[in-house]
Structure formats: C-alpha cells, structure tokens
Simulated assay, not measured.
Amino acid sequence: MPEIGDTAPDFTAPLATGDVESITLSERLEDGAPIVLAFFPGAFTGVCTTEMCTFQDRLASFNDLDASVYGVSRDSPFALNEFREQNGLEFGLISDFNQEIIDDYGIAMDFADLGVYGVAKRSVFVVDADGEIAYSWVSDDPGVEPDYDEVEAAVEDAA
C-alpha cells in the first residue's frame, strides 16, 4: 500500500462520465492540481452511496481548490454511469473491473460469506501535482466513512 510521500501507482482505466472514456492518472496530473481517489466497495450500496453523495455535496469546495475527485470501484463503467445518474454525481467514476488499481494500491478485501472477492476497501488517497501520495486513509470496516474535513484539508495542503 502506498504511504504518504510515495509515488502514486499510475493506471489507465475506463472512466464513467455519462459516457465511457479513459483516464490515465499521470496524464490528469499534468494539469498541476491534486486528485482525490475515493475507493469504495460497490455502487448501489448504502454506505457507498452516502459517501459518493457526500463528495458530491462537497464538490464545490474541491473545485475551489482546483482538485479533481474520482470515485473508484470494481463496478463496470456502465453500472457506474447508472449510479452517477441516479445520484446526480458530477464527478467521474473509475471502473477497476479487473482489480488492477485495487491491487496496485494494496486495498483489496473480500466479503467471503457473500462470495464477493477483491473489492476495494473504503479508502481515500490524495495525489499531489507531483504524483506523490499527500494523504492516505484506508478502513478495514466498510461501514466507516472517511473524515471529509480531513480530506479537504489534505487537498488544501497539496494544492
């Protein structure tokens, strides 16, 4: 798992924006602004929906800091587009359908009793313009949300 000060693992993945595009982290960092990667276990679930809607409610604050927010999950980009639409999300959702990003960030978890394996632990990483991890929060409890004020403060420090 990358620690604060480590170079963020780069990736290219499908990005649900209402359409399906592609995102490469290193290319987005060329804009010179911090990026928030908010990993969540699964779309259309209670805590994940609350978390993504809370990021939406706070999106103006992140925009004011020139930061980009992206949700990341194992869901397909098509499911993520529907999730975005149903919840009025204005930021992109990254589909890590093949679990490559989750593995690179070392945050895979299983719900073995449900037969669900390799989803993301609820985690937030703030990546600064230099591509370094400026903030890291990983929860072993999928029912716990991040401290949104702390995330915003980390973005402000990284801006």
Rank of each mutant, 00 (worst) to 15 (best):
V126S: 09
R58Q: 14
A159S: 14
T24P: 14
V36I: 14
I35M: 07
R122H: 03
E3I: 08
F44K: 11
V72N: 07
F55W: 07
L29Y: 01
D6P: 06
T17R: 12
A159G: 12
A154S: 10
D140K: 06
D6C: 10
L89S: 00
V127K: 01
I102D: 05
E30C: 09
L15C: 12
E100C: 05
D64E: 15
R84S: 10
A158V: 06
V69H: 08
D113W: 08
Y117G: 13
S139C: 10
V138H: 07
D19I: 02
A154G: 04
D6Q: 13
Q86V: 15
Y117N: 07
I4R: 08
V119T: 11
S123V: 07
V119M: 09
A43Q: 03
F83C: 03
D149F: 05
G88W: 10
V155M: 05
A43D: 13
S26E: 13
A33E: 15
V144C: 12
P2G: 13
V151Q: 00
L25A: 04
A108T: 02
M52D: 09
Q86D: 15
R58V: 09
A79S: 15
G32A: 05
D157S: 14
V36H: 09
T45H: 07
D141A: 08
D19F: 05
Y70W: 05
G71W: 02
P2D: 13
P34K: 01
D110S: 04
A67R: 01
P34I: 07
A67P: 03
Q99A: 11
P41E: 02
I4T: 13
D141V: 10
V144A: 08
M1I: 12
E100A: 15
A33M: 12
P34M: 02
G5C: 08
I94Y: 01
I23R: 00
E85Q: 15
A134C: 03
E90C: 08
L89A: 07
A13E: 12
P142K: 04
A67S: 05
S76E: 13
F83S: 09
R84T: 08
E85W: 10
A79W: 09
F83W: 04
F78C: 03
A43K: 00
E3H: 02
L59S: 11
V144F: 09
T45C: 06
E21I: 04
D141M: 12
E132V: 04
D103Y: 04
G71R: 00
I101K: 01
A67H: 03
T24S: 13
D6N: 12
E100I: 11
V36E: 05
E21N: 13
